[in-house]
């Protein structure tokens, strides 16, 4: 049973491949599908291996992916500052 999972915003992805390359447990791969800009966003090929470490979220330059552990909400900023 996987300890975590990732969420992907497909439309923001620019397919740089950072998440795929640096995932410590090799959960991700670039999918053959396209997003509307013509990039191949990642998808989970080994979802059971995901530890929810959020390293993909740290690397993603396009803010398109993040990981979280099962039953745990990712740390958030405490009060959203309204402009």
């Amino acid at each position: 049973m996987a300890k975590g999972t990732v969420k992907i915003v497909v439309e923001r992805c620019k397919a740089c491949g950072f998440c795929v390359e640096f995932c410590p447990t090799k959960v991700l791969a670039l999918s053959p599908a396209f997003n509307s800009k013509g990039y191949h966003p990642p998808h989970m090929v080994n979802p059971e291996k995901c530890s929810g470490c959020d390293l993909c979220g740290m690397y993603c330059p396009d803010f398109a992916i993040f990981g979280y552990k099962v039953g745990e909400k990712p740390a958030q900023k405490e009060a959203v500052h309204e402009s």
Binding site: D62, Y68, P74
Partner: peptide
């Protein structure tokens, strides 16, 4: 309700940003 931790810090109406892939 889980959201990307970076999301509340972003002006999301300006996304996607102009930075190149990579």
């Amino acid at each position: 309700e889980c959201t990307n931790p970076v999301e509340p810090f972003l002006r999301s109406e300006r996304m996607p940003h102009i930075w190149c892939p990579g």
